[in-house]
Design a protein around this nucleic acid. Structure first.
Lengths: 220, 220
DNA sequence: TAACAAACAGTCAAGACTGACTTTTTCTCG
DNA sequence: CGAGAAAAAGTCAGTCTTGACTGTTTGTTA
């Protein structure tokens, strides 16, 4: 009945896209709830409301599914960070706000899912081949974003390392957050680090460098 | 000392102790090599050279085995840190040496095993009940040790948080180390962190208030 | 409209892991 | 020295997961 089809006609290309998206979203959800080992393909298909056969059509093996989910997750994480960066306030508490954003991001469920994959990839060569490069890219993007947001001049000695340290710090905080949520502790640590970081980035004598002025939006 | 015992007589208590130790060591080894999910009880018993039934006698379930391994690992980690602390040089590069020690520790296989348990515990209530308190204890011990080694006065505002940040930093570095070993990067970051940390801990004005006052914040 | 291809759904067998059960060896005590 | 108890070894059934197979529906093209 091609003549008249008053009901919703959905192109198969669109259907494929939606189906895959549902599976990937469900995969990430299950990853967060049950961990990598607890993520069975059966569970994902049930969660997605997709039949087992359909799932197998799109992703023949578990590895195919999870690797695709990793890539999906990478996009989500990138979008997350970019969106959070947009909403950042300008002004005197810029550094603290940037740290807060990073801290939030690395304590979010999205990071938890990434952590599961990270750890699983250590002992799974196939997964590692997919996760490794992606994680590296995410790391570089986060670094670049942080440098931009803070207006850091990476040519000044030590400044690049301070940003790297900042990112590793929030990663460590995120790790600790996974089994014992302690937002207060995190807040206090980031409060202090914001002050120390500002001092280190501003002080021309500290990293052994003659001072030029900071970024323009530096307040009183 | 009954009449005659020419062959090696081993008391059953000692045998039990040895048997358990072998199983726990093997369990940690497998944990590092295969990850938590890849750690089957069968594999551990084979690795330990202990029969399946014998293993089951000492540790009826997988949870029993792994939880015991967690406790064992806690002792190992504590001993590791204490031993490393002994060998520390005194003098001008004290801070850098302490950071090096921490960095090494949190990049060692022992940390990797702990990380596996850490992540697994997130989605395993029984494991979490065992891992949570132990990890907390290890964290506190590491904090205390670092404070001692660096001679930090925690009553000064912000100093406690800086030590916490340092430990979270090395945790983050250790996490990154699990899938891509980059010792050079770690060294550069810790070089800079040592300088920044020394400056922040030494300068009486730096960590202090930037306008708003800072409560000494007792150790909650 | 008919034929063909792609997407989807359901079923099932092979493999792996856990933990209970049974037998054999070793230690201790009367 | 012998009997009983504890420890260790070996075997096995139940359960879960994966991915392959077969049939059905939906969309495209001639």
């Amino acid at each position: 009945m091609t003549a008249a089809t008053p009901t919703a006609r959905v192109p198969q290309e669109e259907r494929t896209r939606v189906m895959r998206a549902r599976l990937l979203e469900a995969c990430v959800e299950v990853l967060i709830e049950r961990g990598y080992a607890g993520t069975s393909t059966t569970l994902v298909s049930e969660r997605a409301g997709v039949s087992r056969g359909a799932q197998l059509h799109h992703f023949p093996t578990k590895a195919d599914l999870v690797v695709a989910a990793v890539e999906h997750l990478t996009l989500v994480r990138g979008a997350d960070l970019a969106a959070a960066a947009e909403a950042l306030p300008r002004g005197s508490h810029r550094t603290r706000a940037v740290l807060e954003m990073l801290g939030e991001h690395f304590s979010s469920p999205v990071f938890t899912a990434a952590l599961e994959l990270w750890v699983a990839a250590r002992t799974d060569a196939e997964l590692l081949a997919a996760v490794g490069p992606l994680e590296q890219r995410v790391g570089r993007d986060a670094h670049r974003l942080t440098v931009e947001l803070l207006g850091v001049d990476e040519s000044r000695p030590g400044h690049r390392e301070l940003i790297q340290a900042t990112l590793d710090l929030v990663r460590g905080l995120g790790l600790a957050n996974t089994i014992s949520d302690d937002a207060r502790r995190r807040r206090r640590i980031l409060d202090q680090w914001a002050r120390t970081l500002d001092a280190a980035l501003a002080d021309p004598a500290d990293p052994a460098d003659t001072g030029t002025d900071q970024h323009p939006e530096d307040p009183a």
